[in-house]
């Protein structure tokens, strides 16, 4: 079984994003970028399936301009067997990424795609499900546990009310939730080795995907700020304010 793990390089989760002063977009200049945390979880899940003898190869792929290769290097250092870079210009919409990934899945004859449930930059949460639809594959989103036996998958997924368990067959798309696993760290020797590994380059054109923007970002701005609050000194004062000032406790 071949597993494909799409990865995205995003602003590090510990850094607060700011808008460009003209409001045209997000100001990322000079800020620390990292692999999307959900993609690290996806890669870890794929690596564990391979280490358990259930997968033959783990391929990672990233779509975008030159810097996305940094993310692929990280994925290689963590243990991905191969890395594919789909060169594509500009900010890519989820549907475009799904189309690029579909072409890669077909070309590489992948059986299982494991990807993050969302990227923590645009928080769209669409790509995995779109890819599953384009391939006419089943999906199990928000996975908290994956069991695999041949072509049968059992996935426990997080839902709004708790969890549910789905039984499905490969080929399939799984998207990862936070509690699926705790990703490993890359060791220094592996980081060094990953620098020398080849990254296969593909282009949107060669994959037969035309890129047209269907969404236009008109403005990016800070949301309304909350009025500053106060410190209280005691439980009595807190309750008094909640009852008589805020009137949220009766």
């Amino acid at each position: 079984m071949k597993i494909l793990v799409p990865v995205k390089r995003v602003l590090d989760y510990a850094i607060k994003a700011r808008a460009k002063s003209d409001g045209s977009g997000v100001d990322l200049a000079g800020l620390k970028m990292s692999l999307n945390p959900f993609d690290e979880i996806a890669l870890e899940a794929a690596l564990r399936l391979k280490e358990a003898g259930l997968a033959s190869e783990v391929i990672c792929v990233s779509c975008g301009e030159t810097p996305v290769q940094e993310g692929l290097r990280t994925a290689l250092a963590l243990g991905a067997d191969r890395a594919l870079w789909v060169e594509a210009p500009g900010e890519l919409e989820p549907l475009t990424v799904a189309k690029l990934l579909r072409a890669v899945v077909v070309q590489e004859q992948v059986d299982l795609v494991i990807c993050g449930k969302q990227a923590i930059d645009d928080d769209a949460g669409q790509t995995g499900q779109m890819l599953a639809a384009l391939l006419d594959w089943s999906q199990a989103t928000q996975a908290a546990a994956i069991h695999c036996e041949g072509s049968r998958l059992e996935v426990v997924r997080e839902t709004d009310g708790g969890t549910e368990t789905l039984q499905l067959n490969t080929p399939a798309v799984i998207t990862t939730d936070l509690r699926l696993n705790e990703p490993r760290y890359a060791t220094l020797p592996n980081i060094m080795k990953a620098r020398k590994k080849p990254i296969d380059q593909l282009t949107a054109g060669a994959l037969g995907v035309t890129i047209t923007a269907r969404l236009q970002t008109l403005r990016v701005a800070e949301p309304p700020v909350r009025a500053p609050g106060i410190r209280v000194n005691s439980v009595e004062q807190l309750l008094d304010l909640l009852k008589n000032q805020a009137k949220v406790v009766s």
Binding site: A17, V26, D121, D122, D123, T217, R219, V220, P223
Partner: peptide
Amino acid sequence: IYAGSLWAT
């Protein structure tokens, strides 16, 4: 977007 740090129109 970005954990609600920003809003995009």
